[in-house]
């Protein structure tokens, strides 16, 4: 464990808490992409299948359980409790355009052709593009609530911090996982224009609006 990975995990946890707070406090999931949240739940489900079989540490197990529970909790709030506030008209990104190629790629490019490893690879690839429906939704509505932009900033920062973690582990532990690194870089790059807007607007106290 290193400081980059720890702060990355904390940023990830913070993002999930911010989203749950937004939906719970505003009693609305307006501006939040249900498709991205469904894909995140799928990412955690396919990545943490070894939760029972492969104990790494109390921290690892606890965080995995929190991530799985909170992702399904978010789906519950979005599609059951506050379903009436789900903005399906703007959440129109075709998930199959992401899931199908990612599934195909995870069969072609992986470390080991075993069910658990392919599912892990699928979850790594899927996570790298899972935010696209959310970013697409913001581009369609042209704006995002401030707390939703904080959620996205924390979520984007987590994988950027993981990249620093991989640099650290490469030099100090000889650890290198090409699949995770490449997918992590793609994932972080997808946030770049959002990061620019967030830093130039939200940090100046303005609302996050996209140039028309």
């Amino acid at each position: 464990m290193n400081v980059f990975r720890l702060t990355g995990d904390i940023a990830h946890l913070l993002a999930i808490i911010l989203l749950l707070m937004k939906i719970w406090k505003t009693r609305s999931c307006a501006g939040v992409s249900g498709k991205s949240q469904m894909m995140f739940a799928l990412v955690f489900t396919t990545r943490y299948l070894d939760l029972i079989t492969n104990f790494i540490s109390l921290y690892n197990t606890t965080m995995k359980m929190i991530f799985i529970a909170s992702s399904y909790g978010t789906l519950y709030l979005m599609f059951l409790k506050f379903r009436a506030t789900y903005d399906s008209n703007h959440d129109t990104f075709r998930m199959e355009f992401l899931v199908v190629p990612v599934a195909g790629l995870s069969f072609l490019v992986n470390h080991d052709f075993s069910p658990l490893e392919i599912l892990w690879t699928f979850s790594i690839y899927l996570e790298s593009v899972a935010i696209l429906p959310q970013l697409f939704m913001i581009s369609k509505t042209g704006e995002a609530e401030t707390i939703t932009s904080h959620y996205l900033f924390a979520l984007g920062s987590y994988r950027a911090l993981y990249i620093l973690n991989w640099v650290y582990r490469f030099y100090f532990e000889g650890f290198f996982d090409l699949i995770a690194v490449v997918a992590g870089c793609v994932q972080t790059v997808l946030y770049c224009d959002f990061f620019y807007l967030y830093i130039t607007k939200v940090w100046k106290g303005k609302k996050l609006t996209l140039p028309a």
């Binding site: 990975r5 990545r47 790494i56 991530f67 973690n165 582990r169 650890f175 699949i179």
Partner: peptide, 10 residues
Amino acid sequence: CKGHETHDEL
């Protein structure tokens, strides 16, 4: 290069 026998990252 070791690192992906067991995935120890979240």
